[in-house]
Design a protein around this nucleic acid. Sequence first.
RNA 1: GGGCAAUUAACUCAGCUGGGAGAGUGUCUUCUUGACGUGGAGAAAGUCACAGGUUCGAGUCCUGUAUUGCCCACCA
Length: 872
Amino acid sequence: MNKTYEPKSFEDKIYADWEKKKYFSAKPNRNKKSFTIVIPPPNITGQLHIGHALDDTIQDAIIRYKRMRGYETLWLPGTDHAALATEVKIVEDMAKEGLTKEDLGREKFLERAYKWKEKYGGRIIEQFKKMGFSCDWDRLAFTMDERCSRAVREVFVNLYDKGLIYRGNRIINWCPCCKTAISDVEVEYESAHSHLWHIRYAIEGTNDHVVVATTRPETLLGDVAVAVNPKDKRYKNLVGKMLSLPLCDRMIPIIADEYVESDFGTGAVKITPAHDPNDLEVGKRHGLPVIRVMNDDGTMAENAGKYAGLDRFAAREQMLADLSAQGLLVKTEDHDNNVGHCQRCHAVIEPMISDQWFVKMKPLAGPAIKAANDKTVEFVPERFKKVYLHWMENIRDWCISRQLWWGHRIPAFYCDKCGKMTVSKEDVKMCPHCGGTVRQDEDVLDTWFSSALWPFSTLGYPDKTEDLEYFYPTSVLVTAYDIIFFWVARMIFSGLEHMREIPFRKVLIHGLVRDAQGRKMSKSLGNGVDPLEIIDTHGADPLRMSLVCGVAAGGDIRFSMEKLEGYRNFMNKLWNAARFVSLNLENADVLPLDKVKLTLADKWILTKLDDVIKASVKFMDKYEVGLCAAALYDFVWSDFCDWYIELSKTRLYSTEKNDRSGAVSVLVYALRALLKLLHPVIPFVTEEIYGELPDNDADSIMVSAYPESSPRYPAAKKQMECVKEIITRVRALRAEMKVPSNKRTALYIVPAPGSEKLFKAGAGYIEKLAGGNSVEFCRPDCKCAAVATPWAEVFIPMGELVNPSAELDRLKKELDGCVAELARAEGKLNNSGFTAKAPQKLIDEEKAKAEKYAELKKKIEAAIAEMKNLQA
RNA sequence: GGGCAAUUAACUCAGCUGGGAGAGUGUCUUCUUGACGUGGAGAAAGUCACAGGUUCGAGUCCUGUAUUGCCCACCA
């Protein structure tokens, strides 16, 4: 083995081997339980970024764990066509050649889009492989492939037939930059400093006027009324009167409506049904017309008179200037409000009336709410359930049509002859009503409409496939909290509606990856890190470990190069531990454990191993991958490397082959087990090292069996912990006494009554690890520094090593500590409340402690007295 | 305006059903001992945000306060 960990030398090779051996592939198998995850499909235009790296490392760890635990595991991969996001990119790309969508036409544009998909759709998959992800690539799906598209049609038509999809003229969020409608969740609200403009509307036939306050004066020409609250005394007599709309010669009525709140603004609201959802409602109630004054590109429409053609913001400025010039702008007030922006291009969203397709949500939300409430689907951590429920309970209809070309085209066909519409799973050539020619709806579906079906469309829906029966519902869905509404919620109601069953039993939510300062990683800040670059320089395993280790579910994680290097060092540590083991294989036999005479240290590490197996299983079963990784990190570094390897050396360098073989056998056993435990998180390095071990149980660690825990040697573990403490204390004493660490000394041990046997067994370890060159079991007849524990005292002859007054100070400090402990224990025992109500076990423990510390105190006092004598 | 979360060592974070505060990084001291200096050994470092309460006992449970962050919401 190399002296250092060099991931480049094996990662690609190992991945290729896994793929070649088809370890990732899953088939329905009645003899095994299934465990399924569908990947959140990355956008085809995307590059692997740190968010995928986190999300999919968690999934890979879970999948690998379950695979090793004997489940038939399917991790189903795929990509998302990402209608709007992709189309925007393609349009940008065309712009470089001076081309627009219209130049190409729909057909040519789609050709280009498919070419784009071919070019970039595969790229991210190759990048996923660099991370080590064990997806079943033979099942690679795409939201626009034939299978998924069929599911989309099926679902659309079914929902339409049930009346759950409808077409309607409603206020939607319009992005004038992307020139499409978007759904509510695609609008990001940001608070902005703006103004409330107070504008004077003259009352017909009088010199009087009404002042209205507005934040969007550019929509003024679309006003069809001014509304006041019916109870508002100021305006009571004006209701029914007509007002002259400024900047044009139209007359509009004053109406009364409960919607108006008298104490905001002036208590008089302009009603613009075409550009505001509330106004549309008010308008409907009062039978008012709808006047749209803006074009799709955000310029003012023809009916905006002299403002026609002006951009909406320019029009605002111009109109304000004109109003001001006419003395109609009476006040400009500072006002903060929330302005919606397009999630994709960040342009200001324009609420506008538009003819679009919608999914009726209330009937679908009911079962989705119930499923969460009765825990048919569970959120981890649970608090995200509230977020989900709040959204579901207040859900509004989902606008699903997009004025784009890239995506699933809406399967509605319009007849020019009879004017009827046909919605069909199959393409319609001829109008079924009159035989006339039909044309398909121009629009495509929201990309999330197809992702909502992902857990079952990828498994064969609408057919009743074996896959679907075996792998559905999937086991856990893993994603970040920012995607709960977009995707998780929609998959839940879709699964319930179309499969009559939840799409996954659990939803594991994690946070976002942030930079070292806690900022969101973003292009504009330039603080993002490229996972591919990190894999190239440090390896995939350190990256995976640094994204996952120590993170509790639901939390954001901070990424930094320091952290990464720390975990790279861990890989090196693990590597070298393995190297140590392999270097010692030569002159020894590796035996099954039942053929080995186990030492105290062996029993200790095997018991600690058992503990960590239990902890790993406990954490992984709760999907706490991060806490599992942290527990293993500690075990490997502290228990296995710092202690067990060092402890094993006494026997490893023995002249007796039996000793050497015993030591090596336990080393190999423990190493193999911990590699398996670590494999789900750091698959490459564990596989590489596993390949170096003799007598493996499988061709590859990834298909080997996860370690089983079994009862071990709790008594030996306790004893070893006593020995360890003695060693630590002696080391500390030596350090404090400034004994050079390469200077070895004689050690004298006086075990406490009852501990004699233990320290005979542990003497070798103490000598080796506490800087001894000999051990004797008696009290030396010379000046000594002493360490006192409840189990034994250790004396080190001072000779010229020790400074007596320093030793005295040290002893005094030790006495202080001991006295404090004693006081604490006695304090508890003297508290009648404690002795009356605490569990007997605790009381006994405290009693034992008090006795031990009382005994210890005597010993330290004796040592102090002696030291004083010596000084005097 | 609602809701959620966080507040623990200099920094980043763990801490499960209440029973003597932990890790990593950084800092300091020291050691090239035959796995590893990407290392070993040792040390310093915390009123567990604040104020109450429940309890024999609170980082952990309850109430309130403060600060920070996030999400949701049609007050024009």
